[in-house]
Design a protein around this nucleic acid. Structure first.
Lengths: 158, 158
DNA sequence: TCGCATTCAATGCAGTTGCATCTATATAGA
DNA sequence: TCTATATAGATGCAACTGCATTGAATGCGA
């Protein structure tokens, strides 16, 4: 077996390991959590994210664009997720008073109730799959390191 | 606005923050990397994962089940991904010599070549999106913390 | 104010995923 | 051995996603 050698633009091994584990950890924990939600008859986490962002907003309504930005949903995914959630009575679409192209998505009382209900599964699931596996200070460190990966590139990023 | 209070089974805040950032970081970095691959006319990362596992295996072949285990692909997803990769000439399906229910998936020279080609984009992308954002020791710490989330539950995990 | 590029959101279509099921083989038990 | 159960892998179908495009409304510049 020939000796491996690193090319000049290869990433440092530490970065590769961190990246591989990042993907694994996310997949593993997300898989466990989604499975718990499903077995509780609850919708996927993306529904929770939308409901939470709406609840957090001042009057329980946001423009689709803003929802997309906050949840990282693609425009067309948001559009169709809102369709489904509207059919389920969790949100309503309202005409935007100032921009006739746009809308306001408003959370309904049923939507608020469902968010709480999901949290009763989701919260303990986070405790079980994340909280139990890390000390508090470890979780803090992890969060700080992950934030560095999320940061927008300063500038000049072709 | 009423005071929020934590229920007794709510996760510690640190864990929630870590979890939210874990999802964000993974989505963000994966999105960037997949976009680079796509704009280079290359297939998704799952193809790379399969090719890499096959190359790493002793003789360039693995049973589908083993591939599923190593890549975390669901059985039906693996089956269909292998279909596509076989159509693309990257792998071949061989009858398993000892278990007539099973198969061996073998990587072809074209498969090996494609893996290398993907790495020429993927490696630098990891360097750019992960390596550049963390010191080596930070990457090491991150990897160690993430591993704690991946660990199989010891036992009695209903 | 007209024309044109831009933005918001929806949608047709093709590709992918998840679920449940199916076929074939293997293995365990009576 | 004969039957029952378990395992490997494929597949029909419905749901979801991604891409490209559309339609409607906006707003800028001449």
């Amino acid at each position: 077996m020939p000796m491996k050698h690193r090319g000049k633009s290869d990433p440092p091994e530490e970065a590769v390991t961190a990246w591989v584990r990042l993907v694994r950890a996310e997949q593993t924990v997300l898989g466990c959590i989604e499975a718990e939600l499903k077995s509780g008859g609850l919708p996927p986490l993306s529904w929770y994210d939308v409901l939470l962002e709406l609840e957090r907003s001042q009057d329980g309504r946001l423009r689709p664009m803003e929802l997309e930005r906050r949840t990282l949903l693609a425009q067309y995914n948001a559009s169709r997720l809102i369709d489904r959630m509207e059919s389920a009575g969790l949100v309503t679409r309202e005409a935007h008073p100032e921009d006739k192209r746009g809308q306001l998505i408003a959370i309904t009382p049923e939507g608020r109730a469902l968010r709480k209900k999901i949290w009763r599964i989701y919260g303990p699931a986070i405790a079980h799959h994340v909280g139990c596996k890390l000390q508090r200070d470890e979780a803090t460190t992890l969060a700080a390191l992950l934030e560095k990966l999320i940061d927008q590139p300063k500038s000049g990023d072709a």
